[in-house]
Design a protein around this nucleic acid. Structure first.
Length: 701
DNA sequence: ACAATTTTTGTTTTT
DNA sequence: CAAAAATTGT
């Protein structure tokens, strides 16, 4: 595509941003202002304009999913091969650099990546051993993450310990944690960034090399970068200062990650002088009504400097707010409403999403959707790779590559039972700490010493033989490795049918991948990354919808205590973040926005009386339809209805049928009583038809 | 050492 | 109300 074609359909501001070629630039891009479009075009423009190889531009995205989408879009614009383009999250890009420069690393390259769960397991293990209160692990993991992402080193921490009145125990745990990581040759996600920074800073030649490679740096969702990540891109773009950052302060909902509280602008202008600033204030996504309502909420944030957005999309439907007596009614209403909208035929289920503040809210919604026979996908609550059997198998896989991985070894040393219990393990732990070596090495040592009984030694010997056998098979594809595990460990035999299915799914979907690549991608992939939602309603948390849009959005649980969440109402800054979260959700809606809440909700096993969210007061009365639902006459009717629905109906949605006159069609809905069943069918050539099953002469195919 | 049982505990968001 | 931890019995 030519330069001019790449600039087509961009507004003046976007065009200016794409064409601006030299020097730092920051784009303040409000929700729905086409920032992904902008970055994509810019990337393509840089490729064609300068005849640049695509590997000379680094593009940082917030999620892997966003990176993949971006690659797809760019592939459509330019002929360049993008297979090894530098497009990805901070973590995946850092991993790429570290793997490429592995020889320069302290532990000769092959490291494993610990994901959040591995991290938690390790911290819990350490707390246990140190006889500290184990339940503190969550806070400790996040504090360690904060230190690392603020580039505060352990040494600095220890020397400032006295002056800072610092929690000494935390520090001890941190030291132990780092020691364990080193012995296991493992990096956590924050380490990926800090190691990359250290590598570049201690190695000027290398830094120069990468500064040279990257003629341009693009960053999406800039407001979410933490100090370490920012430091890294500062390093990389120092020489040429060709950097474009796109962000919106109103969408910063990750203060917990150790993000700078500085606004996008102040953070950036401190380090890059003569920064060009562009404001994108035209919204291409939402209707006027949705913009008005969302703006009325976000403008109550003192720190928000955003001017009101505008759109050419027209006024649109009024935003609706419903208040119900119970959460069941709320869920039922949402499901019913979705079905109605679907049956009208203008929207399909993948145009719709239900959002909530916390994952546990999804349950009751799922039930309601099942009753209405609406297909749905819950995004992000429990991801495939977090299932127990998958994690177990992955632990075996990790050990095949790195026998020193203590976290994985602890996980499977007695799985299936090998008669190696807590007592033995304890002795091993002590030995390994004494030697400063991994558990695997400690076992080797213990086998040749007198500290253990012969029967225990035999068991350990068998285990060592197993691990050696596994790793002797070399590093092949995931399938090869899984087969090896199947034939030697005896673990597969302990699985039930469901677990077996999950493992075969693992083989089926990733079987051909090289093992090392696979393990990296597992650690770097998050639960939102590979969800395809074609034909499904999406259910997800407000945090998870960043970067997504839907024609119809339901935000549920708009109650004080839930949004804002009761744990985040203490400081004004907490409250502001909750408000931004609400704003984020609202601005995901293109056409229709529903907001619902319920008075009675079962939260942590008790029924609670909820008040409507305080944020609702910020919405002018005339912007919105306010509807309060009275309690349903009785519970009996609802129970009857559920029974009726659960009766077997001849067709499920999605079923294909043949009609004598209209040909092949897809069942969209099936309902009614035994002798009077009606179906809604979508015939591609004819449109949506409602038929009585008795007379329709449908044939199932 | 392990399975089955009772008791305790903790309940945000996630790159 | 779940899931995890502690306790008990074999």
């Amino acid at each position: 595509m030519s330069d001019n074609q790449l600039l087509e359909h961009l507004n003046n501001d976007q065009r200016r941003a794409v064409e601006y070629m030299s020097g730092p630039m920051i784009v303040l891009a409000c929700a729905g202002s086409g920032k992904t479009q902008l970055i994509t075009r810019k990337y393509a423009y840089l490729c064609t304009r300068n005849g640049k190889d695509s590997s000379s531009v680094m593009a940082v995205t917030f999620t892997n999913k966003a990176a993949n989408e971006m690659k797809d879009r760019i592939a459509y614009l330019v002929p360049n091969k993008l297979s090894d383009a530098w497009i990805g999250t901070f973590f995946s890009l850092c991993n790429k650099i570290l793997r490429e420069e592995s020889r320069q690393l302290p532990f000769a390259g092959d490291f494993v990546i610990y994901d959040n769960e591995d991290q938690c397991r390790l911290i819990r293990h350490i707390l246990n051993e140190m006889k500290l209160y184990e339940a503190l692990y969550r806070g400790i993991v996040s504090k360690i993450s904060c230190f690392k992402s603020s580039l505060i080193t352990l040494e600095e921490l220890m020397s400032s310990c006295n002056t800072f009145d610092f929690d000494e125990k935390l520090l001890k745990v941190y030291v132990r944690y780092q020691d364990e990581m080193k012995r296991s040759r493992a990096l956590d996600l924050d380490d990926l960034v800090t190691y990359t920074i250290n590598l570049l800073e201690s190695n000027p030649g290398l830094l120069e090399k990468y500064q040279d490679i990257f003629s341009y740096v693009l960053i999406d969702e800039y407001q979410d970068t933490n100090y370490a990540q920012y430091h890294l891109i500062k390093l990389l773009s120092q020489a040429k200062k060709n950097i474009l950052a796109v962000g919106d302060d109103n969408l910063n909902v990750y203060k917990l990650k150790g993000n700078d509280s500085d606004s996008v602008l102040t953070k950036f202008e401190k380090d890059f002088t003569d920064t060009e600033i562009i404001n994108l204030s035209q919204n291409y996504r939402c209707t006027e009504n949705i913009l008005r309502v969302s703006h009325s909420v976000i403008s109550k944030n003192a720190s928000s400097t955003t001017n009101e957005l505008w759109t050419e999309r027209g006024v649109g439907e009024k935003v609706c707010h419903y208040w119900f007596m119970t959460e069941e009614e709320e869920a039922k209403y949402v499901a019913k409403n979705m079905k109605d909208l679907y049956l009208k035929g203008n929207y399909s289920y993948d145009d719709m999403a239900i959002l909530y503040r916390v994952n546990l809210q999804s349950r009751i919604l799922e039930e309601a959707l099942k009753n209405e026979r609406i297909p749905f996908k819950v995004i992000g609550s429990s991801c495939f790779y977090q299932k127990k059997e998958i994690k177990d198998v992955i632990a075996y896989l990790k050990l095949m590559i790195n026998k020193d991985d203590n976290v994985s070894l602890r996980r499977i040393i007695n799985l299936p039972p090998r008669g190696i219990g807590a007592n033995t393990l304890n002795k091993l732990e002590i030995e390994s700490r004494k030697e400063g070596a991994s558990l695997y090495k400690a076992i080797m040592k213990m086998l040749n010493s007198k500290g253990l009984s012969q029967s225990v030694k035999d068991k350990l010997q068998l285990f060592i033989l197993l691990i050696d056998e596994l790793s002797s098979h070399g590093i092949g594809t995931v399938n090869d490795s899984l087969k090896t595990i199947g034939s030697y460990t005896g673990y597969i035999e302990t699985l039930d049918e469901c677990g077996l299915n999950n493992v075969s799914e693992l083989m089926y979907s990733n079987g051909k991948m090289p093992l090392t690549d696979f393990l990296d991608s597992v650690a770097l992939t998050t639960n939102t990354d590979e969800v395809t939602t074609r034909g499904y309603v999406s259910l997800t948390t407000l945090h998870n919808v960043k970067g997504l849009e839907f024609a119809i959005v339901f935000i549920t649980g708009l109650e004080d205590g839930l949004l804002p969440y009761f744990k985040a109402v203490d400081t004004p800054e907490d409250l502001n973040e909750e408000r931004r979260l609400f704003y984020l959700g609202m601005t995901r809606a293109k056409d229709i926005l529903f907001m619902t809440g319920a008075k009675k909700r079962k939260l942590y096993s008790k029924f609670q009386e909820q008040e409507p969210s305080r944020f609702l007061k910020d919405i002018p009365k005339d912007c919105c339809m306010w509807i309060e639902k009275k309690a349903v006459p009785s519970n009996i009717t609802s129970k009857l209805q559920i029974e009726k629905v659960s009766l077997e109906l001849p067709y499920n949605t999605g079923c294909r049928v043949k009609h004598p006159k209209w040909g092949v069609g897809v069942i969209r809905d099936c309902y009614g009583e035994e002798n009077d069943i009606k179906v809604t069918v979508n015939f591609p050539n004819v449109g949506i038809k409602r038929l009585a099953l008795k007379y329709a002469n449908l044939e199932r195919i």
